[in-house]
Design a protein around this nucleic acid. Sequence first.
DNA 1: AACCCGGGGTA
DNA 2: TACCCAGGGTT
Length: 350
Amino acid sequence: MRDTPEPDVLLDWYDQHARKLPWRISPQDQRAGTVPDPYRIWLSEIMLQQTTVAAVKTYFERFTHLWPTIHDLAQAEDGRVMGEWAGLGYYARARNLLKCARVVSGELGGVFPDTVEALQKLPGIGPYTAGAIAAIAFNQPAVVVDGNVERVMARMFDIHTPLPAAKPELTDYAAGLTPHSRPGDYAQAVMDLGATICTPRNPACGICPWRKPCLARQAGTAAELPKKTPKKPKPVRFGTVYIARRVDGALLLERRPDKGLLGGMLGWPGSEWVEGETPDHATPIRAEWKVLPAEARHTFTHFHLRLAVQTALVPMDRTPDQGEFIEANAFSSGDLPTVMRKAFDLYTGA
DNA sequence: AACCCGGGGTA
DNA sequence: TACCCAGGGTT
């Protein structure tokens, strides 16, 4: 019978190597009595969905400075929150963040539920996030399975079934290891292990606290796990955006519909984005339009985009057919999703 | 179950 | 370039 992975071994490692993160209470501080703030844990977990710690840090600091409590966030204006989320991606997260904040603030007295089942009923909280909040904020022995945990389990038990088909099996293994002692620290320890040692490429097996029981390390297959089903190639789509500056400096923008790509975000008026060639589209306002010599290139989850950028300077008394002018002092390019900011940077010569 | 939805870091 | 990621919602 082989060594089995011991949660306590990982917790000892975590006591020594836990990263300092803005939303994390260190094991030492927890022993001293500091308790996590469920609001901050929730906010960090939403931001961390499909997003790296490095990218999240500054956004987390900004959000908690602007809105220190769930009630503050619940009362924020939609456009303000979307603007602060700009650049972080997966904008449905920001819309669900506000929905969730308003439910918790308005209907639950500002108190987050402490069970996986109740948490998962809230907007934007799925199986992973519900488990993470239950474990980290409420110290419950919830099963927490993210991409890191999937990778650690696939290697520990040398599972060659490709993801996502392997997810239920990997979840079972994760459940079997989840301890009742310090479940919050344990959940973070496994994820830290995956983020810093059991990395996707070149795992540092030599310094891994769980190297002894790891079957993939013994088999020499760690670096090739977990297997994944091949992804479809990304097609290239083409489109045009129109950047109109009024003589007083105001810019012609439009709020995108809540549903679909970049939902709820500010953007430049423009054409549909289609495969093949740049589609024809009416300009959003009568003016002398010029096509910029370069195109804005951007890659989304499912396609590459090549965006032609047209620009114009328009007089004061002209009414747009599409979008609305925003005064120069009420606009920052940081309010735009990245693809729109790239187009603006081409325009300004940045 | 399949599909939709960003962006940045890394090799 | 291609791959990776502290996933959830919709259909």
